[in-house]
Amino acid sequence: MSVLIYVTHANGVIKKSTFETALYARKVADMLGTADVVAVSLGNVSQAELAALGNYGVTRVLADNSSVFTQFDSAAQTKALANAATATNAQVVVLSHNSAGKAIAPRLSVRLKAGLVTGAIDLPVISGASFTVKKSVFSGKAFANYAIHTPVKIVSVSPNAFPVVKGSGSATVEAWQSGVLGADVKVTVKEVKTMSDKVALPEAELVVSAGRGMKGPENWGMIEELADALGAATACSRPVADVHWRPHHEHVGQTGIAISPNLYIAIGISGAIQHLAGVNSSKVIVVINKDPEAPFFKAADYGIVGDAFEIVPRLIQAVKTFKAQNA
């Protein structure tokens, strides 16, 4: 018996989302009275990096460092994970609801004949044979409790929904043959373009976002400067992405991406219902807008009614002072 997780890594460095799923899986395993949390690592990750997953509750790591996994193909990754689930008699498989998880989890659901709930925001409630998981629905306007009826369950966990607390421990790392061959890979990755110096928006704990109130793309310097000072990611509203002031991947809202950072600072965004849907699971929301009637103030924890062009530069200075004092 085991609870299984999937290791997300970029060039051998394990991503924070993996620690979130490990801690989630550990708690699920404890509820089920299962000792083993098994992590499946596909591709080249160092022994030390994998053993350190023990700090987050993982007991065993099955590592297949075959070069077939240098290409991300959801079918091949799914096959490997399914084989690991069968080999370890997995009761529950936990993935992150990130780009890899969104590609793999639905495939795995079919392959293992296992019910899937995507984007879980809380631990499951387990009572006898009943297993229910809470997720956000209607783009953040409500929650639903889903019951999974199949013997094996799959849960993908919303990024940032669970704080990462590092414990201590060391996982046993086992070299393992997943059974995936070159012929299983049908997608060829030509290029990966990442902005390595920036915080990725879906994973960001702090987000500075701006909208039409900034008047034009040339004024985004101060938004980026505030984000850099805080160590935050930048985001934007839909109208701003639509007119190409900012790239599409920064668009948060109902038709963009939904995020749940610890802090969301919205500057010059009125707060249309479609925008709120993508951000209202943020833990703390700050709104800066010169229009006191902006609907966003009703969804905010802190608000400043005023001109962003005056307020943001002062905030940048205040953050820098704060960082210097607390360094």
Partner: peptide, 24 residues
């Protein structure tokens, strides 16, 4: 495979705390 047991609405946020724009 799955079914929805029930729904919940998110808790209402507490009233916004306004900060003096002269002292951001």
């Amino acid at each position: 495979y799955t079914s929805i047991v029930n729904y919940q609405l998110p808790p209402a946020r507490t009233e916004v705390k306004l900060i003096d724009p002269e002292n951001p």
